[in-house]
Amino acid sequence: MRLPTPVTSQAVEESDRFLVDLERFQGPLDLLLHLIRSQDVDIFDIPIADITGQFIAAIENVEERLTLERAGEFLEMAATLVRIKAQMLLPRRDDLLDDADPRSELVRRLIEYEVFREVAYTLADAEADRALHRGKGYVEPRTLPKSSELPLELTIEEFLEIALSLPAPLEKRPHRAPVLPVTVDEKIELWYKALKRKARVQFGKFIGRWKTRVHAVMSFLACLELAKRGRVVLRQDRPFSTLWVYPSEDDEDS
């Protein structure tokens, strides 16, 4: 086994100092700017070899946690840095004056990005300031209590009792085209008849008299219709207790 040479370990230490949490950064330009600004490097004379090393060290350590798209963005910048680094090593011809420095395009992009990053901070301040001013409609209008907030005094025993008193599920029958055996109007007549004979009628008993679903539904609708017309009054002491149907007071004289 070979022990690492002191040179290597020093190099690792060196790059360790610049390990950064990539999550904090908006992208490769943000990270690059951080490396440059935090070390007080002159942006117009970036030590490209150092910065490239730090940049690659930073993304190497978190590579597996990045999505492919995000990793691609950082890798593209790493490639750009390496290319610039290589170009810097080439001898430059002094007779070629135009864009002599291979870093100039990168510097332009960094400065441009930094401007917008700064504007973004200004916007964040403006947003926070604006949030301190509330307009009309800010305070929630008072809402009606929800029905579930009404006290429901029902014990589990009572609930079980009701569940057990329900008739067994009806037998399944082959499906037929629904020809209604009875109409709401007919049921209304039946309600009238029943209420003439008795002072009050137990809703559940009336509904359950015909053992089919259609009859139950029609009886129920007829009862609602009568209640809407004001011909009957529905009374129930508490939720789930027996529901009684009374003829309404003014109806008795007619």
Binding site: Q26, F116, A120, E127, A131, G137, Y138
Partner: peptide, 18 residues
């Protein structure tokens, strides 16, 4: 409870600035 203006992310702020 209702009209809390959600603060925008840095990505959103930078994009808006541009």
């Amino acid at each position: 409870s209702i009209t809390r203006t959600n603060k925008l992310s840095r990505a959103a702020l930078e994009t808006l600035a541009i």
